[in-house]
């Protein structure tokens, strides 16, 4: 990977981190409503994964979607505006934190019912296969989603129909507050791919380049027409499940231990240690990301609320 791309990945990860820190403050200030699930700690996953895709590859994910939205190229302005429910938001203020998408950037949401988007991913892939296009659908979900029926129906269908899907489990080890070993018959989620005859690999999700390399390989394997594949990406969320999480289910020491493997810190050490960038250059990137988030907040604050006369827009495509 060339230096410019490496630095861009660093920028993306820092941008996601700063944007969400800012989002948390705005949530506490009452400027963001509803449920909000932060990606902090998991930035290397969406950044490495989506950097490995081609433009024709679709991405679909669950409700922890701000980072994925940024990685797919949605400007911070539109992400922040959606968080604030403004008309300039990427979903025009109708979706909120959990429902961001951008068809023009091949990002298909942002879905808030656990596991329900997995059958949709099979359908997206079917669309490409039916039309003879070579796109791969990259479907991200948490390890908690692998216990619901949708997961099993979707994986089975994708294999039976040889659909071009890369199933990506982000294993952050807790489904809300329930540890993976308390909820899943096998805590190594990749084992579940065995039941559907799929190749699989477990990847260090705190290392953006490891994610990138594994994703690149897996995406191209799927593109070759061999059918679906699975990656299990090991990661950890540093914040609670959502903004209202008392975190009674894990110890502070555990979080601290994982924070030592902060994906941004790990990547920083790699870049400086391998002379890909100076600490000063990375600091400049951090300053730029911070400024971009500040601009996004200003943009969102200044943006208009959706007009009440638009309430019924988009219920149907056709007049009824």
């Amino acid at each position: 990977m060339d230096k410019a791309k490496l630095l861009d990945l660093y920028y993306q990860m820092v941008l996601i981190r700063r944007l969400e820190e800012s989002g948390a403050e705005l949530y506490q200030a009452g400027k963001i409503g509803g449920f909000m699930h932060l990606y902090i700690g998991q930035e290397a996953v969406s950044t490495g994964l989506i950097a490995a895709r081609q433009p024709q590859d679709r991405v679909i994910t669950a409700y922890r979607d701000h980072g994925v939205a940024i990685s797919c190229g949605i400007p911070a302005n539109q992400v922040m505006a959606e968080l604030m429910g403004k008309s300039t938001g990427i979903s025009k203020g109708r979706g909120g934190s959990m429902h961001m998408a951008d068809v023009t950037r091949n990002f298909w949401g942002g879905h808030a019912i656990v596991g329900a988007h997995l059958p949709l991913a099979a359908g997206l892939a079917l669309g490409d296969k039916y039309a003879g296009r070579d796109g791969v659908t990259i479907c991200m979900f948490g390890e908690g989603a692998t216990n619901i029926g949708f997961f099993h129906e979707a994986l089975n269908l994708s294999k039976v129909w040889t659909l071009p899907v890369l199933w990506v489990c982000e294993n952050n080890m807790y489904g809300m507050g329930t540890a993976v070993e308390r909820a899943s018959a096998v805590s190594e989620i990749q084992q579940k791919a065995e039941g559907y005859g799929m190749a699989h690999e477990r990847v260090d999700g705190m290392d953006v380049l490891a994610v990138y390399e594994a994703a690149k390989k897996a995406i191209e394997t799927v593109r070759s027409g061999s059918g679906p594949n699975m990656l299990e990406i090991m990661t950890y969320r540093f914040r609670g499940h959502s903004m209202g999480d008392p975190e009674r289910y894990r110890k502070r020491e555990e979080v601290k231990k994982w924070e030592e493997h902060d994906p941004i810190g790990v990547f920083h050490a790699f870049l400086t240690g391998n002379k890909k960038a100076t600490a000063k250059a990375l600091e400049e990137i951090e300053t730029r990301a911070k400024a971009d988030v500040q601009k996004a907040v200003e943009f969102a604050e200044a943006s208009p609320e959706p007009g009440l006369d638009t309430l019924f827009n988009h219920v149907y495509v056709e007049e009824v």
Binding site: W108, L118, P119, Y130, E153, L157
Partner: peptide
């Protein structure tokens, strides 16, 4: 390819139909 037998899995049937419709097909 156009008359597709599915597993007995209704969520997958409707979910995949939705996903394919999102790409422009008319399932």
């Amino acid at each position: 390819e156009r008359v597709r037998d599915t597993p007995i899995a209704e969520a997958a049937i409707i979910g995949a139909a939705i996903g394919s419709a999102m790409t422009g097909l008319r399932p």
